[in-house]
Simulated assay, not measured.
Amino acid sequence: MTRFAGILAAAILLMGCQQGDASAQLSETQREEVRDIVRDYILENPEIIEEALIELQRRARAREMQAAYDAVEAQSEAIYNDPRDPRLGPDGADIVIVEFMDYKCSYCRVANDWVEDVREEHGDRIQFIIKEYPILGEDSLEASRAAIAALQQGTDIYEAFHNAMVSSSGPLPSERINQLARVSGVDVERMREAMESPAIMEHISQVRSLGQVLGVTGTPFFIVDGTIVSGANELALDQALQRALAE
């Protein structure tokens, strides 16, 4: 892209133009000559098309990322201060990590190993906020409703149930959800009754809306002390965490 711009500028200069008003001074014949120079250069160096496309993609990604960070700043209250969200770790922790997750997402299963390792190593310094973000069908939605209902029975019970479901491979039909809830210490009957509350669906709907505003198109999606990490990218997660710990 830089080489092409240089060739174009040189071609215009060859036509005797002054910077700033080149197009006004070019005759139709001169414009044809410039086009011929540029065309010949592209034909001789077709790789510049690929370079231009790569640069356009880089700029588009940069704009998307900036938009995402702007959205995180604008939505900070909903991201960090919704009292309905499950929280794992101490209040007032040095570092807050937010995770948008889906119980049927295999990448969330991978990322949960990282979450558990971080909690074991830095548990006193870090709090995780879990954003129940079911986007993979009705099983996902039912699992999230069950998890939020189980939270009413205590954070420890929620955590055990959450880990059991996110670690479980395969489908999550009602029977499987009940089984995982039972072994996690959840009162299943009480959970099922609480799941019918419209407030739970309202909560999930608002998290979904928040995710759409932030551009969360897949799970997991992390915000590590303000740094966005999309996917189960353990290297990027570790780097963001180490920067946060150092600060």
Results as ranks from 00 to 15, higher is better:
F4A: 10
A5P: 13
L8Q: 11
L13T: 09
D21T: 07
A24T: 09
S27G: 10
Q30H: 05
V34G: 04
V34K: 02
R35C: 01
R35V: 10
I37Q: 11
R39E: 11
D40S: 14
D40E: 06
Y41E: 04
Y41Q: 02
I42V: 14
N45I: 01
P46A: 05
E51V: 04
A52K: 02
L53N: 05
E55A: 10
A60Y: 14
A60S: 14
R61I: 06
R61Y: 14
A67Y: 14
V72H: 03
Q75T: 08
I79A: 04
D82G: 05
L88N: 09
G89T: 11
G92V: 03
I95V: 12
V98N: 06
V98P: 06
M101Q: 08
C108Q: 02
N112W: 02
D113H: 11
W114Y: 15
V115I: 11
D117K: 14
E120Y: 09
Q127C: 15
I135R: 08
I135L: 12
A147K: 03
A149G: 10
Q153R: 10
T155M: 05
H162K: 07
S169A: 04
L172V: 03
S174C: 01
R176N: 01
N178K: 00
L180H: 00
V183D: 07
V183L: 01
V183M: 02
S184K: 08
G185C: 03
D187K: 00
D187V: 00
M195Y: 06
E202C: 04
R208F: 13
S209G: 13
V213C: 06
F222C: 00
I223A: 08
G226V: 13
T227C: 00
L237S: 05
L237I: 00
L237Y: 00
D238I: 00
Q239W: 02
Q242L: 10
R243V: 14
A244K: 10
A244E: 09
L245S: 09
